[in-house]
Amino acid sequence: MTTVVFLVRHGVHDQLQGRLCGRAAGVRLGEAGLAQADAAGRRLAGEGVEVVHTSPLERTRQTAERIAGACGVALQNEEALMEIDFGEWNGRTFESLEPEPSWRVWNSARDLARPPSGETMLEVQARLAGWLERTVRSGARVVAAVSHADVIKAAVGLATGLSMRCHDRFEISPGSITTLVAADGLLKLHALNEVPHG
C-alpha cells in the first residue's frame, strides 16, 4: 500500500522574523498567513486527503482548520508534529540569541547540538518516524499534516538520509507543501517546498 503525506508549514505570522517563537503560546496568523492557509487548502482539495493532522500550536491549528475545511475532512491534533522544544530559547528574540556560543553551534552543527533544556533534531526525527509508521499502519492513503519548518526539514532528512547539518541548504517556506510517499517500506521525497498560489 502507498501512503502520501503532504507536510504543510503553517502560514506566516507577524513575529516570524523577530523572535524564536518555538512553543510559545499566543502566536497567531495574520491576514497573509490565513491567505496562505487558504491557498494550501485549495491546492490539496482535489488530492483525496482523508484526514488533516496538526501540531497543537495556534498557528498550525489555524492553518490546518482552513485545509481541513477545504478538503471536507476531520482535523486531529498530533503531538509528534509539535515544534522543536527549544527549551530556554523559546520566545527569545534572535538579537538576544546571536551572542550566545550555543546558538551559533545550533545553527552550524544541528545534527549534534541541543538547545539548553530542549530537544535535538535526532529526537525530532525519532518522533516523526514513529508518527509516520503509525500513519502507514492505520491504512491511510492520503494525509495532510501541518507542522513547522524545522520539523518538516527533519522529515525530509528521514526520507533522503540528508544530515541535519545541511538543514540550511533548502527552504521550507510559510504555507508551503512538501510531499512524502511511503511505499514498500521506503519513504521517498516527491516534492519539496511547493508554494501554492491564488
Rank of each mutant, 00 (worst) to 15 (best):
L128A: 05
A109D: 11
T2G: 00
E123S: 04
W131Q: 04
L97Q: 12
L189I: 06
L158N: 06
N193D: 15
E31H: 10
G157C: 00
E119D: 04
I177K: 03
A37C: 10
L187M: 09
V49G: 03
R104Y: 05
I84D: 00
E65P: 00
H10C: 02
P116Y: 03
L192I: 07
G198S: 13
Q17T: 13
M164V: 04
A191S: 12
R61K: 11
V142K: 05
G11K: 06
W106R: 04
I84N: 08
R23S: 10
P56L: 07
A191R: 14
M82F: 01
G11D: 09
G161A: 04
L158Y: 07
V4R: 06
G130F: 05
N77R: 12
E83A: 05
D14P: 03
G72M: 08
E50Y: 02
L20F: 11
S108A: 14
E65M: 12
M1W: 10
L192C: 10
Q36P: 02
P115D: 06
E31K: 11
W89D: 05
A129C: 05
I172N: 06
G11I: 12
T179Y: 00
L29K: 08
F6H: 15
D38G: 10
R114F: 00
S108I: 08
L122F: 02
I84L: 13
G18S: 15
V49Q: 01
S176I: 07
A24I: 08
D14Q: 13
